[in-house]
Design a protein around this nucleic acid. Structure first.
Lengths: 339, 339
DNA sequence: CTGAAAGCGCTTACAG
DNA sequence: CTGAAAGCGCTTACAG
């Protein structure tokens, strides 16, 4: 491992001068600088980022923290990858490192502040937590480095966040169902206390409201946003709801995938017997046996903006609003029939 | 930020003693130790991992380096996520950090050694590179920390690697086609110089050989393993091959997805007019309009073993073989017809 | 323009 | 059992 000391010795100067030269300080005599740079190149010198980090109290790394449910086989949300990918690409380009932590939901409240305190990163981007806003805020307040929450709901509090307008997602989806003539519309994906889910439920409600259709909780079904719960949930809905809905707004595509199976198992056809619409626009929906209509969420943009915002805060030139909310778009395919 | 110094002051001992106590050294008097531990807890002390890293010359972090093509929108391989996820989960559990780097293929040969030299991680896990074995080995030899290559082909050289038996993948796939009565079988996904792709082509060849069917390069089509090239490739095959194949072995599922579209665009049906089989077993293939038969690759296991192996090497208790090769399994769905 | 010195927060022999 | 000292590889005032 070649260090600044080696170069100093060979160039017959002090380590301070080497450091200054390497960092492009004006004070170094051009001749000296040139010599040092040449040596560094020859010796293939790369600064030890750990040592730099210690003295600068900055690691140029941002930690993406994904909280998942304890049974990790369930943890297969393709959106996370898009998010992680766009964050990483942005950060890599500007010379930042990205740390990735996947932590068990049960431990997140203790673990995330520890991660921050270990100083292994300069900022945190939180992803996937199902905690209530209050719990999340209490935790973030204990964290001593900039922390963003992404792909979640809105916060009244002064949290830095970038996400989609969740309410609008399901509003758009339900509106589409309404426009296709449906009146009896179910909802799949309720999670009380989890803000994102509450907002998606709210969008559904809002669309019904506008049409004067009363909210019927007997056709609002819980679902944990994973595929299996879509299967279970839709079967439950189909088995018990009287009269049976002609359409259902499903809070995300993963559950819609499960629902496609569940509906098939019940011997029903989509969209002839029942229409469904999802949310997220995960890849390759057009190739499904039932090309799924859905609402598209700009995950790559969320990731990119989150990364940009984090760096902006760290470098003191942040121009972006504290809370960024992106707009979803309806994507009509063929899982919704007119009636 | 509370440091070891703060605790030392409050406990009226030296920092050395605090350090020893915190690290569970036997030498510290139980009474002293207890007091220090109590203080640390109260003050919510978390060691500065950067400082520890500097003195120990170890960061307890492993860097997953994904090389992708320069146009990153193409870079959407769901397998990478499975791999990253399983590595991260394993590593998180045992207190390791994981750094994630996504780098442009054009720069990988320069950038990866620099990453290693920056000492931001203790080991590298390389993923997604399309370089020739020779180039890769030359690069790895310049790297001064343990480096594994995963999800790739075999190496004759003494490289640490974990992957699937690629040749067997396509051998199994093609064998299945053969058993279903096909004789005129195309191949989609040739990339000369890229070992993984060569091995998959070889598996196809082997299966044909065993049946005495001559290799016909006019029905072996290039494909870059991304979806779009599956679409383009299959159309090319369909347009030019005489006689037209009754089946085609496609080197991965992503291209098979593209091929499904391409075949549709050509006005043909799967499997009535043409049978296809993929490789990888990406999620939710059973929900496609054409439930895709494929060969399953144990990505999670590859990731887990890679992580385990890396840590084993780092901690000097590695029991695993230098080169680990996992076995694929045929997954029959309904994209292959008998004839 | 250059270098000696201090310091970032820790760990590790080693002397007592 | 405890503490003084050195050191990990760097950067940053500051004196000259």
């Amino acid at each position: 491992m070649v260090t600044i000391k080696d170069i100093a010795k060979m160039a017959n100067v002090s380590v301070a001068t080497v450091s200054n030269a390497l960092n492009g300080k004006e004070s170094v005599k051009p001749k000296t600088k040139e010599q040092i740079l040449k040596l560094a190149k020859e010796l293939n010198y790369v600064p030890n980022s750990i040592a730099q980090g210690l003295v600068k109290n900055s690691t140029k790394t941002i930690n993406i923290v994904i909280s998942g449910p304890s049974s990790f086989n369930l943890f297969s949300n393709p959106n996370f990858f898009q998010l992680v990918r766009s964050i990483t690409i942005y950060l890599d380009k500007i010379g930042y490192y990205v740390l990735l932590s996947i932590i068990d939901m049960d431990e997140e409240l203790q673990k995330i502040p520890r991660i921050a305190q270990s100083r292994s990163s300069d900022a945190l981007i939180l992803l996937g937590s199902r905690r209530s806003n209050d719990e999340l805020i209490a935790m973030i307040n204990r964290i001593n480095i900039p922390t963003l929450v992404i792909d979640r709901g809105t916060f009244k509090e002064d949290i830095v966040t970038v996400s989609v307008d969740n309410q609008k997602c399901t509003y758009l989806a339900t509106r589409h169902l309404l426009e296709m003539g449906h009146r009896r519309i179910g909802f799949l994906g309720e999670i009380p206390g989890y803000r994102l889910a509450e907002e998606r439920l709210e969008g559904y409600r809002q669309a019904l409201d506008e049409e004067g259709i009363p909210y019927d909780e007997s056709i609002v079904i819980k679902g944990d946003y994973y595929q299996e719960s879509g299967l279970v949930g839709i079967r439950q809905l189909l088995a018990h709801a009287v009269p049976r809905p002609t359409a259902v707004t499903i809070a995300n595509d993963l559950m819609a995938l499960g629902a496609i199976e569940g509906i098939e198992q019940e011997g029903l056809r989509i969209p002839e017997d029942i229409s469904i619409i999802g949310c997220d626009n995960i890849p390759n929906l057009h190739l499904l046996k039932v090309p799924l209509s859905t609402v598209s969420i700009p995950f790559s943009e969320i990731g990119r903006l989150a990364a940009k915002k984090a760096v902006g805060i760290l470098e003191g030139n942040d121009q972006l609003p504290r809370q960024i909310m992106l707009t979803p778009e309806l994507r009509i395919r063929s899982s919704v029939n007119g009636i």
